[in-house]
Nucleic acid binder design. Structure first.
Lengths: 143, 143
DNA sequence: AATATTGATTAGAATTATTCTAATCTATTG
DNA sequence: CAATAGATTAGAATAATTCTAATCAATATT
């Protein structure tokens, strides 16, 4: 029973960013990065926890948070905070921005090229730009 | 003792947006909009509560949240969410964007003109743009 | 003018989101 | 192969925010 073969790519991915490929992290990485049908995901901690439970993975919510933050710190994910109690983790780590549908709470990628920022201000002395976030907040029109 | 004279401008301001000028709301509006020394404030609910307490205003934290959201809904404030547990209310409601100092948690206005967004993508059908938020995240360089 | 009625407002209690830390696990060393 | 050290996990604690029953205030009624 070669049970770690299907995970070898993920194992490598985790190791390459300095994270031990533990049972929990592997299971979560699988859900995040190898979800069937497309891979650009915007997922909350709670959602990922539900998916894990549904997939019979025994993992606590605290570990979900730990892992999501570790993955984010390692550059495997990007965190997008849209409103006070609502934080998404984005598996798309390329340079891009977001539409946020305020009514439904849904988030959607905008390819980086479609938002052109010209004339960024100079960052204050002693600082450098870590990231620029653009969120275009949308309302459903009665239409 | 004409004790409501000093508040008349605030009373008007609240009434004009359809909010009753209650004791709590008046006190909070005073702290927010008539703070001594400059008026562009980025304040959290907790901070405002502390200021109110220091100013001997009896008001609960729940009411702070209620009021901040009501003021925001009425267009007197703007909410800026910078990270998961950190939400600021901005007294500057003109079109502008923000620097966020990740190390200190401080927020700073960038005048609207200094960030030029050219070529915004077309909003998806059935939606209209409510607002565009640009947050430039900064790190302190060792320097 | 006093009281009743209705809806707005407040704040204690409850909930939700997130973090902390002690216990557990894993890798390495002797 | 046990001991040690450090990483990882998850239950418990905390922090942030919201809910809802009680309170307050405005208007209507007498």
């Amino acid at each position: 029973m070669t049970r770690d073969r299907p995970y070898s790519a993920l194992v490598q991915r985790l190791k390459s960013v300095g994270l031990r490929p533990t049972r929990q992290r592997l299971a979560l990485a699988k859900l995040l990065f190898e979800a069937p049908g497309g891979c650009d995901r915007h997922i909350t901690a709670e959602q990922l926890h539900s998916e894990a439970v549904a997939d019979n993975v025994r993992v606590s919510l605290a570990t979900i948070y730990n892992s999501l933050h570790q993955f984010t710190g390692a550059g495997l994910l990007r965190e997008v905070v849209v409103e006070s109690g609502r934080s998404y983790f984005d598996t798309n780590i390329t340079d891009h921005h977001h539409f946020y549908f305020e009514d439904s709470g849904r988030l959607q990628d905008i390819p980086g090229e479609l938002v052109q920022l010209e004339s960024l201000p100079t960052p204050p002395g002693g600082t450098r730009v870590a990231r620029v976030d653009v969120i275009i907040r949308l309302n459903e029109t009665g239409e």
